[in-house]
Design a protein around this nucleic acid. Sequence first.
DNA 1: AAACCTACTGAGTAGTCAGTCAGTTTATTT
DNA 2: AAATAAACTGACTGACTACTCAGTAGGTTT
Lengths: 188, 188
Amino acid sequence: MKSKKENTHTALLRAALALFAAQGFDGTSTALIAKQAGVASGTLFFHFATKEELINQLFEEIKLKIENVLLENYQPSQPVHERFIQGFSALLRYFLVNPQHLQFMEQYHFSPLSTCALNDNYNNHVLKNILHEARETSAVKDIPVQVLHALAFGPIVSLAKEHATRGCTVDEAMIHATITACWDGMKT
Amino acid sequence: MKSKKENTHTALLRAALALFAAQGFDGTSTALIAKQAGVASGTLFFHFATKEELINQLFEEIKLKIENVLLENYQPSQPVHERFIQGFSALLRYFLVNPQHLQFMEQYHFSPLSTCALNDNYNNHVLKNILHEARETSAVKDIPVQVLHALAFGPIVSLAKEHATRGCTVDEAMIHATITACWDGMKT
DNA sequence: AAACCTACTGAGTAGTCAGTCAGTTTATTT
DNA sequence: AAATAAACTGACTGACTACTCAGTAGGTTT
């Protein structure tokens, strides 16, 4: 059973996520977030010191969720090619199911709040290691890491963004075609 | 010889572009744009009815520039594969040389001002036709257009964004590796 | 039942925002 | 040189912003 405090806390985070995804950080006032969460405007600042802290907490929460999703389905015994397909398909599926999370992460990455490298925001240890291992074992071409990252993450983000902002349908066949093509372009 | 009006007009557009790329649309006040352009705050509204119109004019200007760059180097006599490499390399090179333009376009696409489909913002007739022709002639896999777009534009945007926001160096070899890998992933 | 504490309220504060407009300067025409 | 028009100025406005804080409600402890 959740405490009242926790309920309000998560209600604020959820309202903020929806509004941030739709209108952006700067386009969303703290008063509106509070209203959407069903509390008074001052209550937001009882739970979060500043608007920025609310954004940072949201970022950490989403980052953790993605990490968990990828860890759940990770099978270290599989060959690197299988793990690539599996891992990056899971990431794409996640963003298709949670479009607001992608829109939030994209904004966060662009904003001055973000300090880490571009794809680091999505790039947990699982996916990072897969790419790294594929490169070391010569399963993929010997090209700079930045290029590998762009080739692997670029199409995923691009397709998921299209889905998030324009609502085009993306089925399993399209997911498979995308991730397979990414690998085919990278492999030796 | 440019008129005084034209000078001020372009000075405002240039200042706006630099500030928008660095701080975002909402994070940049019209007063600051005017100051950076060396004019009084009211002058901006003599040249542009609203802040939104300024943004839209900037979008049209950048879109036109990209179209021209791609048309300049277009060689219809070449096979579709050559035109793909040539065209998409030119787009990537453009964004590496004009990082602010990419950052602006990315913001514009996300904002409620943009109405067209995702990659349509970069996707002028040249690149669109190349992809379309490659698909019709079975030079590339028979997969949905959205997937083709994501595979072709995703890595370019991703790599150029990394360059724009983190300043990592991208040389000709990396450009070639990226575009070649895109094609290799798509080809039949 | 008194004291205490946590969660919450919403009017209020100081500051910023896009956009206005009466008036001034500069350029062009007559 | 007078008249007209175009370009520009910057103080101003009302609406909005993140954030504050004195006060309130309800539950728990003593």
